[in-house]
Design a protein around this nucleic acid. Structure first.
Length: 206
DNA sequence: TACATGATGCCCT
DNA sequence: GGGCATCATGTAG
C-alpha cells in the first residue's frame, strides 16, 4: 500500500470558496476503513458563497440543518436530497461566516472494488468507472458518506476517517461553468472542473 | 400538523 | 429527453 497523502490544514479552507475550489481540484479525498483506504482525485466542485448566494443552503440564515456551513472551515457538511441521495460539502471561511464547496465528481484512485460494492454495481457494470464517483450522489454512496456518520467531521484532520490530502498532481487546465441542477442564481460561473477529465459529471466531458 | 420543494440518479422510451 | 422515486427540512397556517 502506498503512503497516505499529507492532510490539508484547516487554514487551506479559511478563504473565499472560489479560491479554495481552484486549489481543491487535483487533491485527494480519503476514506479510512480500518486498514483499507478509499481514495479519489477531486475533478469537479462547485462554490456556494454564503448568505448572499441565493442558491446556497445558507441563504436563509443559520438553521440546525446548515449549521456546519456557518462553523469553522474544513468541516464536512452532508445533506440529504431528493429522498435518495447524500451530498458532501466542505465548509469555508472563518467561524461565523457561511460558505462551502460541493464535491461533484472524483476520479477513483484506490479501493474501486469496495466502491463498487457500496454502489451496488456488478463486476460487469464496473467496465465504466464513471458509475462509481461521477456525480455528487454517486461519490457519496461510493464513499459510504451519510449525514449521520459524517456531518460536522473535520476533513482537515488525518485522525478523522474522512479527510482530504495534498497531491503532487496539478490539473493542466481548469474550466469554470455554471452550476448544475439549481434554479436560483443559475448563471453564476461557480463550477470548477479539470478540463478534459473523463470523470467530470454531465453529458459533455470536453 | 401539513405541505411544497430540492446542490440527483435511474430507468424507460 | 422526460418521468419518477422518496424524505428531511423549512415555512406557512
Amino acid at each position: 500500500m502506498t503512503a497516505d497523502p499529507i492532510v490539508l490544514p484547516s487554514e487551506f479552507y479559511n478563504r473565499d470558496p472560489r479560491q479554495v475550489c481552484r486549489d481543491l481540484l487535483g487533491k485527494v479525498l480519503v476514506r479510512r476503513e480500518g486498514r483499507k483506504r478509499l481514495m479519489g482525485r477531486i475533478v469537479e466542485v462547485e462554490a456556494y458563497l454564503g448568505e448572499d448566494d441565493p442558491a446556497a443552503h445558507s441563504a436563509a440564515g443559520r438553521t440546525r440543518r446548515n449549521d456546519v456551513l456557518f462553523g469553522p472551515p474544513g468541516r464536512a457538511y452532508v445533506y440529504f436530497i431528493y429522498g435518495n441521495h447524500y451530498c458532501l460539502n466542505v465548509s469555508c471561511l472563518p467561524d461565523g461566516i457561511a460558505g462551502g464547496i460541493l464535491f461533484r465528481a472524483l476520479e477513483p484512485l484506490h479501493g474501486m472494488e469496495q466502491m463498487a460494492v457500496a454502489r451496488n454495481l456488478s463486476l460487469k457494470q464496473l467496465h465504466d468507472l464513471r458509475l462509481l464517483t461521477s456525480g455528487p450522489g454517486r461519490l457519496a454512496e461510493a464513499f459510504g458518506i451519510t449525514r449521520e456518520r459524517d456531518n460536522g467531521k473535520n476533513l482537515a484532520s488525518c485522525r478523522s476517517d474522512l479527510w482530504i490530502g495534498d497531491a503532487t498532481y496539478r490539473p493542466e487546465k481548469i474550466m469554470v461553468t455554471r452550476r448544475i441542477g439549481i434554479t436560483k442564481a443559475a448563471d453564476m460561473p461557480l463550477r470548477y472542473v479539470v478540463a478534459g477529465n473523463r470523470f467530470v459529471s454531465g453529458r459533455s466531458t470536453r
